[in-house]
C-alpha cells in the first residue's frame, strides 16, 4: 500500500484517536455504554487498522508478538488475581467489598476497575494475536484477483 498517500496520512491521524477512544470507553464504562470487552475490541481494531495499511512488519515493531502473547494470559491472571486478593483479605472470591471495608460501594468501584482492566488486556491480546496469526501467512490469492 505504498502509493495510497491519503490513506496513510489519515491512518496516522486516526490510530492514536482510536486508542484514546478505547481508553475512554474503558474508563467511562461505569457511566456510559462501554467496558472492557468493547474497549479491548476497539483497541485491537486500532492496531489491526495500522497493520492493514502499513504492513505486518511495521505494526509488529510497535506491538511485538511476544508482548501480545503475554497479554493474553496476563488479563486472565489480573481477573483471577483480583478474586484471590479479595480471598486473602478474608472475603469471598471476587467479593469487591474487601477493597474498602468501610465504604462498600467504593470497594465495588475498585474491583470493577480491576476486573475490567483484566478483560481489556485479554481481549486486546487475543484479537491482535489472532490477526497476527492470520496475516502472518503468505496469501494464496494474489492482489489482482480480488
Amino acid at each position: 500500500m505504498q502509493h495510497h498517500l491519503i490513506l496513510r496520512v489519515i491512518t496516522k491521524l486516526l490510530v492514536s484517536t482510536i486508542i484514546l477512544f478505547s481508553l475512554y470507553v474503558q474508563f467511562h464504562g461505569d457511566f456510559s455504554p462501554g467496558g472492557g470487552f468493547q474497549a479491548g475490541v476497539i483497541m485491537a481494531a486500532a492496531f489491526i487498522f495500522y497493520g492493514l495499511v502499513f504492513g505486518l512488519e511495521n505494526v509488529q515493531r510497535v506491538f511485538p508478538p511476544w508482548i501480545v502473547h503475554r497479554m493474553m494470559a496476563l488479563g486472565v491472571m489480573i481477573y483471577a488475581g483480583t478474586g484471590f486478593f479479595s480471598m486473602f483479605l478474608g472475603y469471598d472470591y471476587l467479593d469487591y467489598n474487601a477493597f474498602a471495608p468501610h465504604h462498600p460501594s467504593h470497594g465495588q468501584h475498585y474491583g470493577i476497575l480491576a476486573v475490567e482492566l483484566g478483560v481489556l488486556v485479554t481481549v486486546t491480546g487475543v484479537m491482535v494475536a489472532i490477526y497476527y496469526a492470520f496475516a502472518g501467512r503468505p496469501p494464496q490469492v494474489s492482489d489482482e484477483d480480488w
Binding site: 455504554p33 467496558g35 493474553m72 468501584h109 476486573v115 475490567e116
Partner: peptide
C-alpha cells in the same frame, strides 16, 4: 454499586464469575 451503568455492575460484580469464565473462553480460543 452506586454506578450509573447497570450493565457494567452486573457484568463485573454481580455476575463476576460468569465474566471470568467468558474471559477464559476468549483466552482459550486465542
Amino acid at each position: 454499586m452506586d454506578l450509573p451503568n447497570v450493565v457494567t455492575s452486573i457484568l463485573a460484580s454481580y455476575r463476576g464469575y460468569d465474566t471470568l469464565g467468558e474471559t477464559a473462553v476468549v483466552f482459550t480460543a486465542g
